[in-house]
């Protein structure tokens, strides 16, 4: 009993903090999503499904998010996998730690500044200017879905490489030797041994990146120039510009529900594939 008392005292501050700053806000959003917009903005109590019925008004934002988030996840996976494979299997152990740190480091620096860097590269005097020199004129890159996709892959690549590396690194290298001793071609070894065994890492990486992409605001705001916007951008607009709290809350609730459903279905699917999620830490 004394034990519980002491632990209770230690837990109380964190518990209260989570209650006030996490549970309360989420409950408020839930309640507000059934309300109405006040005449001057804000929220008027009500119990209506009107806001949810109104969701199609923001269909473009949901469509963009639901297309570009999975697309960005897959693109990041395709670029990250060979690198993770190289780091875990091919590269010399002497360099491995340094190269790994070099992958993680950009992730912990401001994504705002890293996305901003692409304004330079994709903007008028960057790649389009280079292309003009070799005779390809009038290429527009900035403020297109492509720019947003590049920003996404760039921003979240480290988050994809790391878990895949962890699962490939744990893989027993003797299995690969056994496979080739038994006459498999390298390609067949990869398809039948390496790839299936790295499923947990792929699953973790995809989930982490997908979750972050669903709530993305900065990258579309900076590289999409108001033309390519996500649900996150719609939320900023609804809360800060039109001050429509009730509708904004409904959009936020919908986003969270879509995320939870997708992630749950995805995890079920992955566990049926026989993999299990690896718990990884990013440090």
């Amino acid at each position: 009993m004394r034990q519980l008392g002491r632990n209770g005292v230690l837990l109380a501050p964190a518990g209260i903090w989570l209650l006030v700053m996490l549970v309360l806000p989420l409950v408020v959003v839930f309640i507000f999503s059934f309300g109405e917009r006040g005449a001057a903005g804000g929220y008027v109590p009500a119990l209506t499904l009107e806001q949810y019925a109104n969701l199609p008004a923001r269909w473009t934002a949901f469509k963009n998010t639901l297309i570009l988030a999975p697309l960005g996840t897959v693109a990041a996976l395709l670029i990250a996998y060979p690198l993770a494979y190289y780091l875990a299997v091919r590269c010399s152990p002497k360099w491995r730690t340094t190269l790994l740190i070099l992958v993680i480091v950009p992730f912990w620096t401001s994504i705002l500044i890293r996305s901003y860097a692409w304004i330079f590269i994709l903007g008028g005097r960057g790649i389009p200017a280079l292309l003009a020199m070799v005779g390809i004129d009038d290429v527009r890159l900035i403020n297109t879905p492509f720019a947003v996709l590049v920003g996404i892959v760039y921003g979240y690549l480290p988050l994809m490489v790391f878990p895949i590396f962890v699962s490939l690194d744990k893989l027993d290298k003797r299995l690969l030797e056994a496979s080739s001793d038994l006459g498999s071609t390298p390609l067949r070894t990869f398809w039948q041994v390496t790839l299936p065994l790295s499923v947990p890492g792929v699953a973790t990486g995809c989930m982490l990146v997908f979750i972050l992409l669903m709530g993305e605001f900065l990258i579309p705001a900076i590289l999409g120039g108001g033309k390519v916007f996500f649900v996150g951008n719609a939320l900023v607009d609804l809360f800060l510009q039109s001050r429509n709290w009730a509708f904004g809350s409904a959009v936020a609730m919908t986003l969270v529900i879509i995320m939870l459903v997708t992630v749950t279905v995805y995890m079920k699917f992955i566990s049926r594939l026989g993999g299990q999620r690896d718990d990884i830490s990013l440090m």
């Binding site: 989570l18 700053m21 996490l22 309360l24 806000p25 989420l26 409950v27 408020v28 959003v29 507000f32 929220y43 979750i211 972050l212 669903m214 709530g215 993305e216 605001f217 996150g232 939320l235 900023v236 809360f239 709290w245 904004g248 809350s249 936020a252 986003l255 969270v256 995320m259 992630v263």
Partner: peptide, 19 residues
């Protein structure tokens, strides 16, 4: 803790603001 890490920052931000 799971919810805190999972919910997008933007939802945390607006939820905290209106609450």
């Amino acid at each position: 803790i799971y919810i805190a890490v999972m919910i997008p920052g933007i939802v945390i931000g607006i939820a905290t603001l209106i609450a």
